[in-house]
């Protein structure tokens, strides 16, 4: 028991140090690293509490997905565009202080009301063992008692995904590029300069040349003389197919 307690305090200490690092670091990537450290230690604490499923999910979801995305976005964004973290803004500091104190009060109230050990729920070691382990028990509870909550969460996440896709729709880079391409084509061959000649409706049949299926579902044209396909390139007709 003493070893467990010792390990717990060690993990808790690192978790808190990591959390402090999140706030203190000037570099947002360093903040993210601190957060990961904190999450991993919390996961280890779950393990001590014999909640191995929760621990692994904590690692997969928070350390493995959420923070990776945070780092991803941070790396994509230009450093100048990041918000100022450490400026002296009295309003922000005050808001943070109030919120922090509120959280502290809430947690204190909870501890004061129920004690450090909390109130034991219906699940004890024996009942968990009867079901067949922590993971199984958690699954049963989640998909029976909390079914509505699960469904609502799923719906919320779906809405968030759709919203994110709608918001992040690339502003038509391709359209801007298409405009640029048209200007770029310097036509010496056409007196009007930039106009692209319209392709003819039909091309003359290959005279001596032949069409060969070259693979990949692509035909190529084999020209035997230099004056085939000179009126119009071989291109248009096959493009249309």
């Amino acid at each position: 028991m003493t070893v467990q307690v010792l390990v717990f305090w060690l993990l808790a200490l690192v978790a808190i140090l990591g959390a402090l690092g999140v706030v203190a670091a000037r570099n947002p990537i360093h903040s993210a690293i601190g957060l990961v450290l904190s999450f991993l230690n919390v996961a280890a604490i779950y393990l001590i509490a014999r909640a191995e499923f929760l621990a692994v999910v904590q690692v997969i979801v928070y350390a493995g997905a959420v923070i990776v995305l945070v780092v991803f976005v941070t790396m994509l964004v230009h450093p100048d565009d990041l918000p100022e973290f450490h400026g002296r803004r009295p309003l922000r500091i005050a808001t943070g202080l109030v919120l922090g104190l509120a959280l502290l009060a809430e947690v204190s109230a909870a501890i004061l009301a129920h004690g450090l050990r909390g109130t034991p729920g219906p699940w004890t070691d024996d009942t968990i063992a009867a079901v067949g382990g922590n993971t199984r028990a958690l699954g049963q509870v989640l998909y029976s008692d909390f079914m509505l909550a699960i469904q609502l969460t799923a719906l919320l996440l779906l809405a968030a995904t759709i919203g994110a896709i709608a918001l992040a729709r690339p502003e038509a880079v391709s359209e801007r590029l298409a405009a640029a391409r048209r200007v770029m084509t310097i036509s010496l061959a056409h007196p009007r300069g930039l106009d692209q000649p319209a392709l003819p409706a039909a091309l003359p049949e290959p005279q001596n040349g032949r069409v060969k299926e070259a693979g990949g579902g692509r035909p190529i044209v084999l020209a035997r003389t230099a004056d085939e396909f000179t009126e119009q390139p071989a291109w248009g007709e096959w493009r249309a197919r």
Partner: peptide, 8 residues
């Protein structure tokens, strides 16, 4: 799977 996701 968790190891894989932390390995990144």
């Amino acid at each position: 799977l968790a190891l894989g996701s932390v390995g990144v």
